[in-house]
Amino acid sequence: MNRLVLHKRLKEAFWGILVMLLPLSVKAQNVTVEASIDSMQILIGEQTKVRLEVSLDAHQKMVLPVIRDTLVHGIEVLDIAKPDTQYLNNKQRLLVTQEYLVTSFDSAFYYIPPFVVAVDGKPYQSKSLALKVLTLPVPIDEAHPEQFFGPKGIMEAPFVWSDWALVIWLSLFVIPLVILVVYLVIRYKDNKPILRTIKIEPKLPPHQQALNEIERIKADKSWRQSGESKAYYTELTDTIRTYIKERFGFNALEMTSSEIIDRLLQEKDQKLIDELKGLFETADLVKFAKHHPLMNENDMNLINAIDFINQTKIEQDPNAKPIPTEITVEEKRSRYAKIALLSSIIILVVAIVGMLVVVIRDIYNLCF
């Protein structure tokens, strides 16, 4: 064991003396090639720079050595800087500097051979270099040299919320999406009809509509103030004609007054028809002959219209079934609704699959 150590130390001393005896530069004609290293001794994993400088005439052509990932076995090249070119002597000379960032992970004494630079096709060499790589000093308990400790166990990384936030939120968001997809699939398969509720406004009986309209005419004072009876009788007779149409079933709106009276004679007593006939005759005189009836005559015609409605109205049966105000209509699902439903299912499934892929990928990256 002592012999091996002695041999290693003699080898290191030999290379050190050899490096010191080598010339610092090699000159030939006008070309100078120099190599240097920032530190000849580093610890394992430390970095140092190797610098190559070439001086030549400006008209000469130069080719630097091609170096890739290692200088020699055991010395790794981490980075190769871009060559720096400087002009000297009024641009008659060039100084080219190339730097290499190197490191080593094995303790040893390394010999770096000369760099070869080609200038105008002729090789020129730099000096050789040496690099000594040392291990980190390890403290030793000299009082208890027999005690030693094995490697420590693997430490678990602490839980960091930000690392798992995306996984947790996506997982929580996937659950309601899955429930929604299941619901839409069930709806798509059962093909149940769509239920639509329609509100129905109950229709008033004809006599009620007519009496409401007469009350409106009676309350309207504009015709009294202007003295225009034509608008009054027009509205009153139109109301009676509409009632007759709804009550008796013939189109009184398209008939003359005499035609209406003749048709009603087949239905009711003569006295009631005479009162209605007087109303129509007065209305015709007002509209076509510019007749101006007295106020009591207007009121009498209004009363006669109300009496005619009350005498001819049909009372509702109190035992009759009330008409519903709302009905429910079943409509079959349309083709476009099915397409929209199926498209929604496909989009949701794709979104869920994408989220699950992201969740599984992040869990794998965080755990393995």
Rank of each mutant, 00 (worst) to 15 (best):
E213T: 12
E213P: 04
E213G: 04
E213V: 06
I214T: 10
I214F: 09
R216H: 15
R216G: 06
A219M: 08
D220K: 09
K221V: 04
K221A: 01
S222L: 11
W223C: 00
S226R: 09
G227I: 09
E228Y: 06
S229W: 10
S229V: 06
A231Q: 10
A231D: 08
Y233Q: 01
T237H: 04
T239Q: 09
T239G: 04
T239C: 13
I240V: 15
I240W: 02
I240R: 04
I244G: 03
E246A: 12
F248S: 12
G249E: 06
N251V: 14
A252L: 06
E254Q: 15
S257R: 13
S258Q: 15
E259V: 13
E259C: 01
I260G: 03
I261T: 10
D262S: 11
D262A: 11
L264W: 04
D269Y: 09
Q270S: 07
Q270G: 03
Q270F: 07
K271I: 09
L272W: 03
I273T: 14
I273N: 07
E275K: 13
L276G: 02
K277T: 12
K277G: 07
G278Q: 14
F280D: 05
E281P: 01
T282W: 05
A283Y: 02
A283T: 06
L285M: 10
V286M: 00
V286R: 01
K287G: 00
K287M: 01
F288G: 00
H291C: 02
H292C: 00
H292R: 12
P293I: 05
E297D: 11
N298I: 05
N298T: 11
D299C: 00
M300V: 05
N301K: 09
N301D: 10
N301S: 07
L302D: 04
